[in-house]
Structure formats: structure tokens, C-alpha cells
Design a binder for these strands. Structure first.
Lengths: 229, 229
DNA sequence: ATTTATTAATGTAGATTTTACACTTACATA
DNA sequence: TATGTAAGTGTAAAATCTACATTAATAAAT
């Protein structure tokens, strides 16, 4: 009977984390080499099992930390994957989570100690189980999110140039954007502070640095703005 | 250890179905009265447990059919809910699914036999567990979906008037729409067939009936159109 | 001191899309 | 044949989006 708890089947519930990162080389994804069977040695998303006394969000955070040392990463739930044989060992349903982080802010050392590695999004190895599908879906969501939130700022250093911001969006959307139109659209959101300071790395002229204005952003967010790039 | 299947905790996995329907009285939701403890007699989403040899999509379909007799309803996965005590009997994670159906096409008799009932979306009873939250999130998704798919057609009779279509969208978005602008936006999609036939119920003049042109719609869908109402 | 090379910064006109808005038409009923 | 009711229809102004090229600032080289 359906209305009976006792006769219902229990299953393993896993969480898999899709961590996107950005640095000067573009958009990347964080993967680990499995250190246990099955598929030991193959590349995989960062994953683990939900504990009985833990909510899914907490499991995702714990698992990410366990395998990478990363802390305080806000992840968003994406989708539950439930194909019968997706994990050959035992019936396992997996819930995917994703996040976007700034690679440079997140101690590369720690990640190294844990055997996690960044791969360019367009040059990543084949993954175990249904992890490739999970990543594809996460990329779609990431693209969608750029249109409703200025999500990219989390991926940049605190002070950044317009060019960096442009290149970030180009990497996420994988298309070229018109520089002038991009700048005026971003400016029209009024969520950036233009500093007096310039970044002199990139050119002789130097380019102005900006910071993200969190207060103004929160304000905007209430109005459900849309950003068409 | 995380890398051990045998030591991982197993949990119950449930599915809850949020079924939206539309008829001349507006947008409704399908609920049932629990016939077992806990919360027996209270109103609830249509839900049940995943079986070991079943994928989530199939479980949602089976459970919906078991409690309502409804068949061939395409549902879409929404979100996994995992609060520790969301179900007081036993640790249960629930994955929500939602669908939109045409109330008149789906034999009210069958639903009656199964004690399921339609409630106006704005006048539904309080629900058990976290089901209210599930419904709220489903409504948000429903609104979003109107902007990227002409999703509403599934809710109307095969032949419908522009007014019916307009009222459907107004119910989903819960805002008034300009009649002329609505019609021209819908027409510009070129996914309707205007029939020679008129519906004489609504007025002396009568209003033209339309059908949904599935082929043209499939064509459009490839181009990821957006419908800004 | 002057030239050169490099990237940053900036504005606009035309095209497209969106919005706001009111009168006429067709028909059944009285 | 007059009346009442909802259906059907078009446009001008505003807003947004797109495509596009020149000048400015500076460091390095001469």
C-alpha cells in the first residue's frame, strides 16, 4: 500500500556539486579523481551521501568542504537524477547543486591537497555516471541566471575592470558581446561604483576599477530586473 | 567514511504532485484529503513513495494515477525538500513535480471516486507538512514558464476563444493584460489556427474559435522564443 | 622631447519593440 | 427596427536595442 511508511523502499541519496570558477583564463569547473571503486581514478563531480540528520543544502556544503577545503560557498539546488542504474553499486538518487566562485579568492593550495582540479569548461575530461549530463544542465542554468541576476560579480576580484566583467559574461554565454552596449547596459543597472583608481596591468592608459555596490543591488533585486546582453 | 556505500544512511524518498487546472472559474489546484495517519483528514498534495525499481518521473506518474485516475499527464520536476522533520513519522525527502491540465478534459468523475478535489488557487485550504511552500514555488515556476512557452494551451479546450486564452494568462500571472496587445503578441507567434466557427455562448456577436497548431509550435520552440506579456 | 603603439573611453542615429488607448461591427433579443 | 453586449481592430509615441568609429591617455622607444 502506498499509505504505509513501513513498506516503502529506502534508497541512498547523494549530492553532487558542480563548482564553476572564473579567472583570467576563463570559465572552469572543479573536478576530482575518484579515490574509491567503482570508477576509481576517473574524473568526477564532487559528491557524497546525505546523512540521516542533515538537510540537502548542508550535505552539499559539507561534501564540498570535505573534498576541497572550500568553505562558505553558497550553492543552489538544481535537479534530482534517478535513473535506476546511474550508480552501478547501489540504487542511488543524486541531487545536483551548483555554485560560482572566484578561483583566486579560494586558496588553490587547499584544493591541491585534496586532489581537486580546475578544468576549462570547454576542455574537461569525460565524467563518470551521469555527471556529464549534470554539468550540461548546470551550464544552462548558469546562462539563464545571468539574465536575471548580475551573478557574475561573485567571480571577480573585489576591484575589477569593465573588460574583466565583459570577458566573464562572454565566457558564461560563450558569445561575443559588443563592448559599448555591454557597458551601457551594466551602467544602467546602477549597481557598480566607479573608483578613481586605475588598473595599469592591462594597458598604458590604464582602465578604471569598479566595485560591486551590494546595497543598490539588493534594492534592484526587489524589482525583478532583467538583463538582456 | 564518505567513500563507503555500505555505511551511508538510506532514506525514504517521496514524490508530491502539484496539479494545476483551469476552467471557466479560473486557475485551480488538485488536492486530496489524507486517508491515513499522520494528519489523516487534512488536505495534502497528491504524494507517495518512490519504489526501488522506479525513476522519479515514473513514480510521479504512478502516484498521480493511483490517487486520481489521471493518465498521461506530463509533469516536470521542481525541487527536492529535505527538512529533517518535514514528515514527523520518518525521515523523508520529497521531490515535487508539477503539471497543468484542462479540467474539463480530465473526467471529473474519476477524480471524485478518488476523493481528490479542485480548489481555486486563491482559496485553497492549508496543507500538511511543507506542501504550502511547494505550491508557492510551483506557482512561481508556472509564471516563469508562461514567458518561455505558450504553456497555457494545455489548459484550454481544443477549440477556444481569444478571451479564454487571455483570461487564462491573466489567472496565471494574476494581473490584467491589455486585450489588443495580448492578441497581437499571440498572433505574432503564429501558432494558432483561426477557425471559421464561432462560439456563441459569450456574446451576441459571437467570437471566433481557435485551435493550437502543434506543428508550428514545435518549429518555433527550436528558436527559444520569448513571450513578454 | 617627440614619436609610436596600445588599449580605454565614449555617443548616436536608425531599427525594432512595446505600450497606451477608443471606436466600429455583428448579432440576438426585445 | 431599435437596443444592448461583447468582439474585433490600428496607430502614434515612447522605450529599448543594435550597430558602429573616433579620440584620449599613457608608457616605452627613439
Amino acid at each position: 500500500m502506498l499509505n504505509s511508511y513501513s513498506s516503502a523502499d529506502k534508497v541512498l541519496l547523494a549530492v553532487d556539486c558542480i563548482i564553476f570558477g572564473f579567472d583570467n583564463d576563463g570559465l572552469k569547473i572543479l573536478l576530482i579523481q575518484r579515490d574509491f571503486e567503482p570508477e576509481k581514478g576517473k574524473w568526477s563531480l564532487i559528491g557524497g551521501f546525505l546523512k540521516r540528520d542533515e538537510v540537502l543544502d548542508a550535505a552539499a556544503t559539507r561534501i564540498l568542504n570535505t573534498y576541497t577545503g572550500l568553505n562558505d560557498i553558497y550553492m543552489e539546488q538544481l535537479h534530482a537524477y534517478s535513473e535506476i542504474d546511474r550508480d552501478p553499486v547501489e540504487r542511488t538518487i543524486s541531487v545536483s547543486y551548483f555554485a560560482l566562485i572566484n578561483i583566486e579568492n579560494h586558496n588553490a593550495e587547499l584544493i591541491k591537497n585534496y586532489h581537486a582540479e580546475w578544468f576549462p569548461i570547454n576542455d574537461a575530461p569525460n565524467l563518470i555516471f551521469d555527471h556529464n549530463e549534470m554539468v550540461e544542465n548546470a551550464i544552462k542554468r548558469l546562462r539563464y541566471k545571468t539574465s536575471i541576476k548580475p551573478i557574475g560579480f561573485e567571480l571577480l576580484p573585489e576591484k575589477f575592470t569593465m573588460r574583466q566583467l565583459l570577458e566573464l559574461y562572454e565566457a558564461i554565454l560563450s558569445k561575443e558581446l559588443d563592448k559599448r552596449n555591454f557597458i551601457s547596459k551594466i551602467n544602467s543597472l546602477e549597481i557598480l561604483n566607479k573608483l578613481d583608481e586605475k588598473d595599469m596591468q592591462s594597458s598604458r592608459k590604464g582602465s578604471y576599477l569598479y566595485t560591486f555596490n551590494k546595497e543598490k543591488y539588493e534594492e534592484k533585486l526587489l524589482n525583478n530586473f532583467v538583463l538582456n546582453l
